Simulated scan of single mutants.
Amino acid sequence: MTWTQDELVAIGEAEELEISPQRADGSFLKPVTVWVVRHDDDLYVRSYKGEGGRWFRAARERGEGHVSAGGVSKDVGFVLEGDSTVNDGIDLAYRMKYRDQDTAYVDPMVAGPAKETTIRLVPRQAATR
């Protein structure tokens, strides 16, 4: 499954995204607000706290969850992004999209611990809830 152009635009232009990783029992963690960026035809998030972020640990462990932003609400898979070339593009996307934000927040998102938590959001069929 892929994102529609309308979904890419709506989520990509949203200032923030609500992310809820799924627990092993099928329930979802309380939504956490994160920054989201679009790079090409994909959407990415990072954990400001690096691997210490609770939502990130749950996302990595279970690999599935739910996101909402820009009027779009979607079940997703979480794919860790390890390609350094793609990550460089994601860094630029963060710097461009959030250029009006305090650099005390932006700089950590494109460095060290946060960069190592880059997750590509992949739409999936809605689970029966």
Rank of each mutant, 00 (worst) to 15 (best):
Q5F: 03
V9I: 04
V9W: 00
G12P: 13
E15L: 02
E16A: 14
I19N: 10
Q22G: 07
Q22N: 10
R23C: 10
D25M: 09
F28L: 11
F28M: 05
L29K: 06
L29V: 05
K30V: 12
P31N: 03
P31W: 01
V34W: 10
V37W: 03
R38D: 04
H39T: 08
Y44G: 01
V45L: 11
V45T: 09
Y48M: 11
K49H: 12
G52P: 01
G53Q: 02
R54N: 14
F56I: 02
A58N: 00
A59K: 00
R60F: 00
R60C: 00
E64L: 15
V67G: 09
S68L: 01
G71S: 04
G71L: 01
S73H: 12
S73M: 07
D75K: 04
G77N: 04
L80F: 08
L80V: 14
L80K: 12
E81Q: 10
E81F: 04
D83Q: 04
S84N: 13
S84D: 15
T85G: 09
V86A: 15
D88R: 13
D88V: 05
D91W: 03
A93W: 02
Y94Q: 00
R95W: 12
R95Y: 09
R95T: 14
K97A: 14
K97D: 15
Y98C: 11
R99N: 05
Y105H: 03
M109A: 14
G112F: 10
T118I: 10
I119R: 07
R120M: 09
L121M: 06
V122D: 08
R124L: 13
A127D: 12
R129S: 13
R129Y: 07
